[in-house]
Structure formats: C-alpha cells, structure tokens
Design a protein around this nucleic acid. Structure first.
Lengths: 205, 205
DNA sequence: ACCTGGATGTGGCCACTGTCAACATCTCGG
DNA sequence: CCGAGATGTTGACAGTGGCCACATCCAGGT
C-alpha cells in the first residue's frame, strides 16, 4: 500500500511532456490546462506553481517543437552526400525546405504551437535571430550562404532569399494543413511541393 | 417612449456585421457569440435562430472576408495599364500577389477568419475550386494563364505555378502577421516582399 | 531531535464561454 | 380574428483559465 507521494518529483517536465502530447494530437487549442493536469495525475492548479499561465506552458511546448524541427532539418541535410559544391549546396537547400514541410505535415499540432509563439526581438523591435547560431532560421541562412559561396546564387539575390524560401515552404505547409489544399491526395501534394521547390530554386539563380 | 420592437427585423445580417467587426479587431477568437449578441443588442441565444452554431456564423464572416480579398485583388489588377502583353501579364501577376499580402496586413482578423474556414471539395475530397470562376484562387489562375498566353511563362512550368505563387504570398503574410517577421519595420517588410516577388517571378521564366 | 519557513500541491471559487430546452412574444395567412 | 410558425428571451449546464486560501512536505539551522 504505497500512497502516492504528495510531491510529484519533476512535475514541470511531466507537464510539458503531457502538454506536448496534447498539442501533437489536438493542436494548440487542445492544450487545456485542466486536461494536462488530469493526465499528469495532479490537481488543476498544480501547474501554476511552475508556469505563470497557460501561455507560458505553451511556450515550453513551442520550444520543444522548434527543437524537433531543427533536428529534422539537420538530419535531412546530413543525407546529402554530393561532392560538387554547387550541386551540393542546391540539394541541401532543397532538403531544408522539404524537411520543413515534412515536419509540418507529420506534426501539425507541434508545428502550429511552435509557430504561434512569440519570437525574439532586438531593442528596436525587429526580429533578432539574424545572429542566432541555432534554430531553423539560422540553418536556412547557413545553407543559403553555402550556396552563395559555391557560386550557385548571385550575391545580389542573397538578401531576401531567406524570407522568400521560408515564406514558400511555410505558406505551402499552411495551405496543406489548414487551407484549401487540406484534402489534396498525397501524390498530388508531393508533386506540387516539388514544383514549388523547382520554381523557387530557379528564382535563385 | 417607443419600446424597442421584440423582433429585430434583420438580425441575421446584423449579427454577421457585428461578428465581422469583432473579427477585424480581435481575430477569430474575438468572435465570441455572446459578445456579438450583446453588441447587436439582443439576447445571448438569439443567434441560434439564424446559425446552427458559432462556426456557421464564422463561416459567414469568412465569406465576407473572401469577397473583400477578391475585390481588393481586382481593384489592384485594374491599375495595370501596360500595353505589351507579356509585361502586362507579369505586372498583373505581381499586383495579384501584392494585393494578397496587402489585404492580409490591412485586415489581419478578417484574413485569418477567411483562411481558416472549410474549403469546397469535390467528390474525391480534393479541392474543388479549379473550375471556379470567382474567388482569389480563380483570379490567380486567370492571371497565370494570361502570362502563359503572352509567352512569359513556359507551359511546362504552368502546373504548380499557382500553388507556388499562393504559398509564397500566403507564407509571407503569415510570417509577418503571426510569425518571426511580426515586428519588422514597414520599409524592411516592403523590401522583403519585393525581393520575394522578384525571386518568384524569376522562377517563372 | 526539533521546528520553522519556503516550495509544492489541493480544493473552492469566480467570470466567462458555447449550447440546449422551455417559455414568451410577435407576425402573417387562412 | 386567431392560431401556427418564426423569432427572441430566460435559465441552466458543463467546460474553461485564473485567483485565493489552505494543506502538505522537505531541508536547513539550532
């Protein structure tokens, strides 16, 4: 007859994990504080000892999602084994985009939570990840720089290329996840993605 | 001393309008059934005589938003006065994209509501606006067809061009509205949009 | 060995929401 | 003119996020 301990031991981490599970299956709106507490076997108020409010918990889930996204991108990047620098860089760029979309489609809930979070800003209020060394955006910039260095992308087109790439893959993900392409059959969806990546790639030449 | 009439007269339309106002200022989550009723000066349950549930009301607002978007796009398209067919088509394509982003930024709430709605699907479940004559998507396809006809876009690149264009402008809008580019100063934002439109345009050549 | 203060978890409460069911009121066609 | 159907109201319910006061536990100092 072991009575459950009054203190959980590592409630904070447990809550984040449960919240992430809910986010995975039901998106941001599925992360209901009381349900998280229920599933973690704790009272509906315990979470407030570890998070200021629901948003702070969601923030943790968002960080977790960003980590997963970055790992997925890095994993796919590592599969490119081409020698020729320019071809290699171009393939790596493509894999970056493909990994982004693939993650969004595989983990729509986490993706949505991760994206809906606040983003770091510098003192002027402008986005401040330009000098970040990690994170999906930094990774994209890195790959784009590789492409410039390899001679595959005219330096004049380099500024703006990051936003263009990001917008394309992000928009595609949204169109498929929540938008008009929601019910597009898988093969057509993949074809559309390839076509889009082709167009963007052609535009960066 | 005129006592207010028991019946409103045109409650349905009035509710949609109030809901649209709320959507404009507070996005989809701001469209709270009870608040809509309150502002319309009616009891919190009156809406149920006209809409099955909150989603149906939101659907009306979404249609309204789509109309506005399409009108904005058409208005901008009409400003292109160039004669040369190819240049004209290319400019019209650009204005299409610019109008989309501009509407999203000017009316973020309506935009979000409009986009989050269900979309028509055909019997197979695939999106069914391919043969639509109106709506933003039909307009985009029309402009792309113009570009092909004018010789500005190789027919081989025509399939997929629609999704690519849409994804780019939609993604850009999302990055600015809810994403990392949220606090980007206006001038930098415009520059980034121009750069992106350039890249997409180059890709469609 | 105590005991005391801070950290952690609990239960009760409030305002708010969407939705349902029962009731009230009005309007219009026979 | 009168009754049926459409429209609007009141009241209730379960569910939510958030706050407060209280209960419990653990660690560190004496």
């Amino acid at each position: 007859m072991t009575t459950p301990p009054y203190h959980h031991g590592n409630l904070r981490a447990a809550l984040v994990e449960t919240a992430a599970e809910l986010a995975r299956t039901s998106g941001p709106d599925g992360v209901v504080l009381r349900e998280v507490a229920r599933r973690t076997g704790v009272s509906h108020n315990a979470a407030y000892r570890h998070f200021a409010d629901r948003d702070e918990l969601l923030g943790e889930v968002a960080d977790l999602g960003m980590d997963h996204l970055e790992r997925a991108m890095r994993a796919r990047l590592a599969t490119v084994r081409t020698r020729d620098p320019e071809v290699r860089a171009r393939r790596r760029l493509r894999e970056t985009g493909r990994a982004y979309v693939q993650f969004a489609l595989a983990e729509p809930g986490l993706f949505e939570v991760a994206f809906a979070q606040e983003w770091p800003t510098d003192e002027t209020g402008a986005p401040d990840f330009s000098h970040q060394e990690s994170g999906p955006y930094a990774l994209l910039n890195q790959v784009l720089d590789e492409l410039v260095a390899a001679g595959g992308l005219p330096p004049a087109l380099r500024p703006g290329a990051d936003v263009a790439c990001w917008a394309a893959v992000h928009g595609f993900s949204m169109l498929v996840l929540q938008g008009p392409l929601r019910h597009l059959p898988t093969d057509q969806r993949d074809a559309a993605l390839d076509a889009m990546l082709d167009i963007v790639s052609r535009g960066l030449t």
